[in-house]
Structure formats: C-alpha cells, structure tokens
Design a protein around this nucleic acid. Structure first.
Lengths: 210, 210
DNA sequence: CCAGAATGGATAGTCACAGTATCCATTATG
DNA sequence: CATAATGGATACTGTGACTATCCATTCTGG
C-alpha cells in the first residue's frame, strides 16, 4: 500500500498522515528504495487508534505519541497504563498545603477501607487530589460525603475492567486493550451514567426537576 | 471590591478577568459611575467555578459560557444538564450507517433491560454511539460484551448521584450542584476507578502484569 | 484641589496546537 | 520517457485562550 491508498483506506488527508509520521505517532513504512516506502494494514489500524485517542479520548497529539511509544517499547503493562493514566487525569495544580493534606488524608482513609495500596506516587493521585480540593473549594460537600459509595462502586467496576482485560485472547495486543479500555472505557461509562441518571431522575421526579 | 482586589482575591490576572467579562462568563460588576464598577464575593465564587470547569472539567471557554448562561437564565434543571452533558460528551462523528444502526440497536436493548427511557435525542446519545462504534472499529469486542455489567453499575452510581443532589440544602444552588456533580463527578469517579483498578490488578497478578 | 495611580473598554498581539499547503529532488508507471 | 506520485523539508493557516497596550475617565492621598 502506498501513501495515496493509505490515505484513501483510512479516510484521512495525506498531509495529516505525513504529520503523524513526523511526530512519530505512525511508524515509517517499509522502504522499497531510498525515498519510497510501503505501508500495510497495521498502519491503517494504527491510524484508527490514533484518531480514537485524539477524538474520543480527547488526548493531545503529544500525549498520544507518548502512549504509543510506551506501547511500542514493550514497556510493562503497568508502565503503559501509568503513562495513559497520567495523560488522562491531568497534572496537579496549586491547591495549597492545607487542602492537599486534607485530600491526602481522605484518600488514606479510603485506601485503608478498601484494601487499596494507595501511594501519592500513583499516577491518578495528582488528578484526584486536584479534583477533591476543587470540589471542596467550590463548596459542594455533599459530593465528598458520598465518596465511600463511589469508591465501593469503583471497586465493582474495576473487577469488570479486569475481567474484560483477562478475556482478551491475543497476548500481544493486551497492552493496547488496556489503553483502549482505560481511555474509551471512561467515555463509555460516563455516557451510561448519563443515561442512568436521566432514568433515575425520571423515576424520582416524574414531573421533572423544574 | 475593585478590579485589583478581585484579581488578588481570585489569584488570576486582571487581563484574564477582563477577558471573561468580555466573553460573558462573569457578570459585570455593579456600576458606581459610568465607567467604574464594584465586585463582590459572588464574583470570586464565579471565578472559582469558571476555573474548575475549564481546568478540571476540561471544557472550553465557549462551552463554559453556554453552561453558565443556562444556569443564569434559570433554565429548568434538565435543560442545564442537557447543555452540560452535550458539552462533556462531544458531538457525533461519522461512523457509517451500518455501525450507527448497530449501536442504536445495542442501546435499545440496554434501555429495555434497565428500564431506561432512552431516546436518540438524549444529549448523551451521540457521544455514546460514537464511543461504541469506535470501540467496535478498533476490534475490542470484550469491552462491549460486558456493557451489561457496566450499565448495571451505572444504575447504582446514578442512585448515588441523585442522593447527592437531593441532599443539597439550598435550592437556588441545586442547578450549580448538578453541573459540578456532572463535570467533576466524572473526573472524581475516573480517578477512583484508576485506584481500584490498580488494587484489583495487584490482587489478581501479585507479580505484576508486565 | 490636584498629580499620579487605577479603572473600564477597545483593540491588537502572542503562543501553542493541530493540522495544511507548497516545493522539490527523486521514483514509479503507462 | 513523459506524467504522476512519493518522501522529506519548510512554511503557512486557523483556532483558542489568553496577554499587552492605549486611552479617556475616575478615584485618591497629600
């Protein structure tokens, strides 16, 4: 397959494919001469994955590059997931010393109650701390008071997540499956949550919330 | 409070505050003369909310403007949530007629099984359809095979969500609480899910996955 | 009361990001 | 072998989110 066919097959402009090649998101094709290359199905597949992470996952091109590089490098699954999770969760922002301590304490307790092995080094930690502190600063304690319930359900969903991963047949794509499961899994569940909220709201307030 | 104090209080540059005023995210202050104004605590509060939706929620300035306008206009709660959800979930992308039909059928079945009242007009629908089709196109059926489990857990979490909302004391801020609960609630749960996944993974594979 | 700082409002400039477009010296192909 | 396509480099565009500059008032401390 040559560039024009790859473009047709994937439905994206040649210029864009070249851009992804430059950025290292897409492997260079197999050289057939000093300045010609041939591409295969794996390139089409890769382009699909790139678009999914960009469009549905909302990651930046640079982040996608990092995630794909980790996959390609054959990093241990945990490391790839770490990269992915750091990307998804957004860095820490200044929340003040007192607020940070409060959030850490809260997470500490949650961890103990759920048999998690939480460490402040966990990739999700900075984002969680920021989110918790933001909710508190906005004055919405009700959300935080129910964090126990949310954590319990997070446990349940993590079981399903791991079942999903374990069910995956091919071992060489399990890391990709983990990334897709993490990035698109969040979107999927968020959507289902919306639907379920609407249903529950209709159940509780048949005349509308007003 | 005047501009310089509002800036100091909120920790953001004067130029940025002026920008939000221009974009209509922040109400103009109370005029004290044709070209002077005074600001209050509600402006500080509003700036916090804006930053939360921008930074933690990842919304665009234009989207935040739309959400806040809906809140200010005293739109019915469902409408405000609709605006918020459309913003969060991202529009539909071209997925092809066959794939769309498949996704709609899947959602139809899910809806029936869970007593939801799904309609393709639901704000979350386009995003869900896109996500489902993307997962399928990437060749990860395992994720979709477990959608029943995810939907069941979405039901459980929606109950907690509605409890959270119902617990809110002040009626005039309940719409804001709904927005915060939706936008930050997703982030919060995603973070907890990461923690729970790590714990479950450690439980199942004590020697690491990788 | 008045000099100097601050304000509201308008306009223009900057920076990063995600592409697009153009060139061009080779290759491929009918 | 004439025409089209390719890889690679470089330059350009458009959007989003600020950031900076001006300026005609307005405030404020001495």
């Amino acid at each position: 397959m040559r560039m024009a066919e790859l473009s047709a097959e994937s439905g994206m402009p040649v210029a864009t494919i070249k851009y992804y090649l430059r950025e290292g998101l897409l492997h260079p094709g197999e050289r057939t001469s000093p300045n010609q290359a041939r591409y295969g199905d794996e390139h089409v597949q890769r382009l699909k994955l790139i678009r999914a992470l960009l469009d549905v996952g909302g990651l930046s091109v640079a982040t996608v590059g990092g995630v794909l590089a980790a996959i390609d490098a054959g990093e241990p699954t945990n490391e790839v997931l770490g990269v992915t999770q750091r990307a998804l969760v957004g860095g820490a922002s200044d929340v003040g010393e007192e607020a940070r301590a409060w959030a850490l304490d809260l997470l500490e307790k949650l961890t103990a109650a759920h048999g998690w092995k939480f460490a402040p080094e966990h990739p999700a930690a900075p984002g969680l701390i920021t989110t918790l502190c933001t909710i508190r600063a906005l004055g919405h304690p009700a959300l935080i008071e129910r964090i126990e319930d949310y954590a319990t359900l997070a446990d349940r969903i993590a079981e399903v997540d791991l079942d999903t991963l374990a069910a995956h047949p091919s071992l060489d794509r399990i890391v990709e499956a983990a990334v897709v499961g993490t990035v698109l899994g969040d979107r999927l569940f968020a959507g289902l949550r919306r639907l379920a909220q609407a249903a529950e709201s209709g159940r509780r307030y048949p005349d509308g919330l007003g």
